[in-house]
């Protein structure tokens, strides 16, 4: 392979990885930014999204239809979770939700093992997605390009939602001054629930698009949870722009590291995190808000 082919391959791979990381991390970040809940079960919701996608496609649904339906199912699960375990401890310290969502993570993982078993699953892709596309001397898998496209569509959709719709503006306002939002007659209970559901939709989307990228197994969410933590910590807790920057930075570093020193890839990613935090303790863009 020529040098350009390798470069294109690495760039595309890092964009794909960065995109998936970004969608999971932004979901986590939205929930944290609005409700100050660090949802440790977020990775498991992402896994649940992948399994939902798998089951929907296996029962005959089109892959793209599953990409729309699965995230909504995860949102419903999210709304139930929010009502049952987050709302009762809303006013208490963050430790309560940390412990409760940590327990929830094991509960969801157990549920997944119970219904789908331990063996890895694969989402059946439509014929055209199993092809490769010649780009600059490399043959790039079409499903990876579809993943990239889905990420872009999801991000643009999210930006338009937060930027242009009244609901989106309420979410942004509530992420900075929740008290004033309630003083304008808006019920913060719905805002919190909406933010949680939105975060779950994003986890669900990421789950379905990751299906073809990685194998679907009951613990797929754990590594993703840790990686998305790294993203939001490097980007700055609660900052959406920071998350975008951090996700693609990690995508690039991890892909490069995997190419050159496969076994040390994650070590290098964590070293980068440590270095960034040593010099910028509040992350690249500081603890932020939605913009």
């Amino acid at each position: 392979m020529s040098f350009t082919a390798i470069a294109v391959d690495i760039i595309l791979n890092s964009l794909v990885l960065g995109g998936v990381l970004l969608i999971v991390a932004i979901g986590l970040n939205i929930i944290y930014g609005l409700s100050r809940v660090m949802n440790l079960a977020h990775g498991s919701l992402y896994a649940l999204g992948a399994y939902a996608g798998f089951t929907l496609v296996a029962s005959g649904l089109n892959y793209f239809a599953a990409l729309l339906v699965a995230p909504l199912l995860i949102a419903v699960v999210g709304l139930i979770i929010e009502r049952v375990i987050i709302v009762p401890v809303r006013k208490r310290s963050i430790v309560y939700t940390l412990i409760l969502t940590y327990g929830l993570m094991f509960f969801l993982d157990g549920l997944i093992k119970y219904f789908w078993g331990n063996e890895p699953r694969f989402i059946e892709l439509p014929q055209f997605m199993r092809q490769t596309l010649p780009i600059a001397g490399t043959h790039y898998p079409v499903f990876r390009l579809v993943t990239l496209l889905t990420t872009a569509v999801a991000m643009i959709g999210l930006m338009l939602f937060l930027g242009k719709t009244k609901l989106g503006i309420i979410l942004r306002a509530a992420s900075s001054i929740p008290e004033m939002v309630s003083c304008m007659g808006i019920n913060m209970t719905f805002v919190h629930a909406g933010a949680f559901a939105l975060g779950c939709v994003l986890a669900g989307i990421a789950g379905v698009i990751s299906g073809p990228l990685y194998t679907i197994d009951p613990i797929m969410g754990h590594e993703m949870l840790i990686s998305s933590f790294v993203v939001i910590v490097i980007g700055g807790l609660g900052s959406l722009r920071g998350a975008v920057l951090a996700a693609f930075l990690i995508g690039l570093v991890q892909t490069l590291a995997e190419f050159f020193v496969t076994d040390l890839a994650m070590v290098i990613v964590y070293m980068m995190m440590a270095l960034i935090l040593a010099f910028m303790p509040r992350g690249l863009l500081g603890e932020g808000r939605f913009e």
Partner: peptide, 21 residues
Amino acid sequence: PHKVVRKGIGYVPAERHIFPG
């Protein structure tokens, strides 16, 4: 608060609380 405010209250806080961004 949201229910109280809907009775017809407009609140101008001392910090002004203009939403950033």
